[in-house]
Design a protein around this nucleic acid. Structure first.
Ligand SMILES: NC(=O)c1ccc[n+]([C@@H]2O[C@H](COP(=O)([O-])OP(=O)(O)OC[C@H]3O[C@@H](n4cnc5c(N)ncnc54)[C@H](O)[C@@H]3O)[C@@H](O)[C@H]2O)c1
Ligand SMILES: NC(=O)c1ccc[n+]([C@@H]2O[C@H](COP(=O)([O-])OP(=O)(O)OC[C@H]3O[C@@H](n4cnc5c(N)ncnc54)[C@H](O)[C@@H]3O)[C@@H](O)[C@H]2O)c1
Lengths: 219, 219
DNA sequence: GATTATTAAAGATCTTTTTCTTTATTAAAT
DNA sequence: ATTTAATAAAGAAAAAGATCTTTAATAATC
């Protein structure tokens, strides 16, 4: 009956995820401002460029611990460092990618990820045409080699860009091999143990929003 | 002073976007169930597979207009048709893609988009190496040809997969040429007239969530 | 035929996120 | 020095979304 007791559990109330998702955009903007030689930036300015609310930006930036000065704004350099630290972009994150097809190859060859500290160090596939080759300097191994390499190197992140049917299997293997976070591009919901964090990038979800809008325009 | 009058504007309170984003997943699941010969499905079953709340699924599905039967569930066939109609997946949507690089090529060659009715009919680039060639059967034209072709064909959707620096220009051109919706993969916020709908797919946002989690694990 | 278990539907509540409001700070202008 | 305007910060309110609760329907079981 006294189920109210349950609410004693203190949830570690972190940073709102929408805030984290906005931060890379701030970081991008700040970096290009810095390149132009700017030293300070105000929240209203950022808000205007990003199409956001004023106070939203102020609150997001507050999570980095950096405070701005009235009538001046924030130090761009301070903010960049704080955002990079907050997002973990100033550390090295090595990742394995499984499924070196069209999408996988694009991810491997994308230079922009360097900005985030994330580096794809090896790819895995089961297609004999691909195994043994390199893509953009990254070697493609047979999937069998994953366990061996994952234990020797110290890999915390796995990227799944295989067809949907293989995704759950790959996720199970990754979880078993000590991967801490999975970035999943296959259009399925994968199940993993609690200590593994999964981030889905379901392109279909985005496309659905567009097609729904085109098909049923809001009045 | 009487600014309360503003609140008389009736907002056309549509379907929640998170609901639209979940729908393609339901559709995927239902299609694979149908392939296995299943005829009915219950909301709790879907919820379990997708890691969602029971009532969430019921409410989402209610937006399609299809009602389920107690003790039986929903007709899979009815639901599939209703979801496809709702999402606009049962119509033809022709799209132009600008920026036929790594990511653009992956998108062009992705077979899965057929399921949604969306088809990339032409690609555009400024790289002479690419112009005049074909990628997966899709011709690559010089960007200059966009206006001409967009007016002759009847294209409602544009995909931006150019570097960030070019994105705003491309968006302006698309908006000028009557494109109704833009799917933007460049990591910048683009500005367009009100009647153009923009859907951003910022891979950085997803990566940031992962790296932030890896760097600062919750307690 | 009555009972039970499963399910959808509708409504209420809670949580999260965004927006609005007020206050305080401070550089620049007077 | 004083005033002004731009700004950050903190708090309140509103909006959106997710979850929980109750009710009603109905197929399967007894
Ligand atoms: N290409 C896109 O633009 C795009 C868009 C949306 C979603 N996706 C999703 O991304 C995933 C990959 O798409 P793609 O277009 O690159 O497909 P693809 O067929 O080009 O690549 C898939 C790769 O995975 C490999 N593979 C298959 N089974 C495997 C296994 N068990 N272990 C290791 N490797 C395996 C294949 O050999 C192939 O190289 C799919 O789930 C797809 O739905 C892709
Ligand atoms: N590849 C990925 O996995 C990935 C991941 C995240 C984000 N992105 C973003 O997607 C976009 C494309 O990335 P990519 O890796 O395919 O880059 P890319 O360099 O391979 O491709 C870009 C293409 O755009 C063309 N282009 C440049 N300026 C143009 C213009 N003004 N008009 C028409 N075409 C033009 C180039 O010739 C090139 O073919 C970038 O904005 C990138 O930040 C890509």
């Amino acid at each position: 009956m006294d189920s109210a007791v349950v609410s004693n559990i203190k949830k570690p109330v972190g940073v709102p995820e929408p805030t984290v998702r906005r931060m890379p955009k701030y970081l991008n903007l700040l970096k290009s401002m810095q390149k132009e030689g700017d030293l300070f930036v105000s929240a209203p300015y950022i808000a205007r460029l990003q199409g956001l609310d004023n106070t939203q930006v102020v609150k997001d930036l507050a999570y980095t611990g950096i405070t701005g000065k009235p009538r001046v704004g924030y130090s761009i350099e301070e903010l960049i460092l704080a955002l990079e630290d907050f997002l973990g972009f100033n550390r090295k994150h090595e990742a394995f990618l499984v499924g070196a097809g069209f999408l996988g190859s694009a991810l491997i060859q994308y230079q922009g990820f360097k900005e985030s500290g994330m580096r794809i160090v090896a790819a895995f596939d089961i297609d004999k045409q691909k195994v043994g080759k390199e893509i953009g300097g990254v070697p493609v191994f047979h999937l069998e080699k994953f366990r061996d390499l994952a234990s020797r190197l110290h890999i915390s992140m796995g990227i799944i860009s295989t067809p949907a049917g293989a995704a759950q299997n790959i996720a199970d293997l990754m979880a078993g091999w000590g991967i801490k976070a999975i970035w999943n591009f296959a259009p399925v919901t994968i199940k993993v143990p609690d200590h593994v964090f999964v981030q889905d990038t379901h392109l279909y979800a985005n496309l659905a929003v567009i097609l729904n809008k085109l098909t049923h325009p809001a009045k």
